[in-house]
């Protein structure tokens, strides 16, 4: 087990090194001069040169990369070119918003998707099955930007039930020690804030949940159907177990591995930034931070964000692999 973890850690380092190279090169290949972008078209040649020197852009690329790498190893990705704050700090500040959004969306998707998939499988071929699987087809093929705008239009504009965006109503201030809205609201001890936090999270989480929900439903249904006909299920029935126990402990339990895989993949994807959802609902998350940084050529923030996202992605996958070992004893020994 320790060997395995050590191996995975080495793998993480290799991935991060690769990511740093790719991101660095990509940012430097982009057309447009950072200094011009920052100072504007009417800057003098002298001030441009001074800024380039200040940013180290007049150094050879390899030297620039070395500076970037040695800084990154100590958690210093430089300062944002837009507001001079530490780049990594900006990433860390945006991440909790994305984390909270992602976890709520996945929680919704799993809590609804798994039971729906089970119900569809148990009623295979009936109208219940059709009533569940047909909408999931729409679910996987629904463009998020369109769906997001539609739910905003209906629930915020027309019905006025839920806020249009942001984390809190304008003018409401709350200390944000963790950066997770709901947790901060609970810590603040004001129940009104918890309610506000939940209200602001509901639409974006539901929007972000559609695709994972549809995927999880379909995967659960498929895996249930293939587990149902396995020999050990017959053994379980022959023991005289109640049908509910057979379904839960001998069919669903064995179908969990592929379901967990999908959940893990979705978690990794969503954590790397739900750009569209965050933009539509004006949430200051990682996805929006990255897009803004790329558009502004704020390469320290882009680099910090990319390395951070890659780390999270690899760690989530490691977590999923460890889940397999818990779920399937056959994997444990290998």
């Amino acid at each position: 087990m320790l060997d395995y973890l050590a191996g995975r850690f080495a793998q993480l380092l290799i991935v991060l090194f690769g990511v740093s190279v790719v991101v660095f090169i990509a940012m430097h290949l982009l057309p447009g001069d950072v200094a011009t972008l920052l100072l504007g078209d009417r800057a003098t040649a002298a001030s441009l040169a001074r800024l380039r020197h200040q940013l180290g852009l007049d150094q050879p690329v390899i030297v620039q990369y070395w500076r970037f790498l040695s800084g990154a190893l100590s958690g210093d990705f430089g300062t944002s070119l837009r507001d001079n704050r530490p780049a990594f700090g900006e990433v860390l500040q945006a991440f909790p918003v994305t984390l909270e959004l992602t976890l709520s969306a996945l929680l919704l998707a799993v809590a609804i998707g798994v039971p729906l998939g089970v119900a569809a499988a148990l009623n295979e071929g009936t109208w219940i099955d059709t009533a569940i699987t047909t909408p999931t087809l729409f679910g996987v093929s629904m463009p998020v930007f369109w769906l997001g705008l539609m739910v905003l239009l209906v629930f915020s504009e027309k019905l006025g039930w839920l806020p249009v965006g942001g984390l809190m109503p304008i003018g409401v201030h709350m200390a944000r020690p963790t950066g997770l809205s709901i947790l901060d609201a609970v810590l603040s001890g004001r129940s009104g804030l918890v309610w506000q936090a939940l209200r602001h999270l509901l639409l974006p989480a539901a929007t972000l949940a559609t695709i994972p929900l549809a995927l999880i439903t379909r995967i659960t249904r498929g895996e249930m159907l293939s587990s149902m006909n396995l020999d050990h299920v017959r053994t379980a029935r022959a023991k005289g177990l109640p049908e509910s126990r057979v379904i839960r402990a001998h069919i669903l339990r064995n179908a969990l591995i592929p379901i967990v895989t999908v959940i893990g993949l979705q978690l990794g994807l969503l954590l790397s930034g739900a750009v569209l959802t965050e933009t539509i609902f004006s949430l200051p998350g990682l996805g929006r931070l990255m897009v803004d940084a790329i558009l502004a050529r704020d390469y320290p923030v882009v680099q910090a964000g990319a390395v951070f996202v890659a780390t999270v992605f690899v760690l989530v996958n490691l977590g999923v692999d460890l889940c397999y070992a818990v779920l399937d004893p056959r994997i444990r020994r290998q």
Binding site: H232, A238, N254, L327, P329, R330
Partner: peptide, 27 residues
Amino acid sequence: DATILQRLRGKEIGMIFQEPMTSLNPV
């Protein structure tokens, strides 16, 4: 009905199957 059947299965009537490799739940 199913509840009576469940009471008989395993308790009054036991069954063993052809494929020992797949008849047990691997997890």
